[in-house]
Amino acid sequence: MTGEAAARAAEVWKIYGHGEAQVHALRGVSADFQRGQFTAIMGPSGSGKSTLMHCLAGLDDVSAGEVFIGDTRVTGLGDAGLTKLRREKVGFIFQQFNLLPTLTAQENILLPLAISGRKPDQQWYDLVIKTVGLGDRLGHRPTELSGGQQQRVACARALVARPEVIFADEPTGNLDSRSGTEVLGFLRGSVHEFGQTIVMVTHDPRAASYADRVVFLADGAIVDEILQPTETSVLDRMKNLDNEARAAAPGNAAAQNTAGQNAAAGGNAVEETPDA
């Protein structure tokens, strides 16, 4: 099965606004995300990395081009089709965890299955629970869990439905580095042990180093990619990107430099808001 694309973008354009105020968030991006692969999408603020993920996940529509999840053409689906897609093929992990405060950890994990009226595969469920290491906290409400525990609940929630692909949006953005490491290790484990496909947006080179492949975006286009990245190789590549950007657009340099420095400072910067 490996080698086949779990998610695919073909010549995707995303344009916001009209006329003078027009912003090209994505400029003809084409990318395949292989089954059983952990891909990180990186890039400075405003590079379009979040937009790309939103388009891939069917959360945002594209201005031109096509997006596929497995063999499903996402582009052009209506609300009912998108709902079906989300139920069956897509899982999400958010920076803000987004657990329902009224439900226990276990109920949160089972929510996607409950929504689509499916029964959990008990063996798989047990395995996921064991892997995320939440055994004794399952009856607790999110407010009674630490950030790391909450994010592990969110990961379990995404995994338990065995989606075609999990999209993770800055999953470690709100975590301290120890909790972040746990979550990243867990994500990598789920790819290598269970063959899960994960696409993660991050600006933290350390987080990206857990991926099998890093795709670099700048100015709405893919500019580079690294296979089997390390923290150093990612950091180097980011610096280069920064310099290139500075050379290309001197007016933007200061802002991008700040973003780069924050990223370099350990990836715990929380001020960045999603591109939308």
């Binding site: 609300d79 009912a80 709902t83 987004n98 329902l100 929504i115 689509s116 439905a161």
Partner: peptide, 16 residues
């Protein structure tokens, strides 16, 4: 808002 967005994102339809 965010919660509703999340449950929609994980597959709840409009009617539900």
């Amino acid at each position: 808002t965010r919660e509703i967005g999340m449950i929609r994102a994980i597959g709840m339809n409009r009617a539900s």
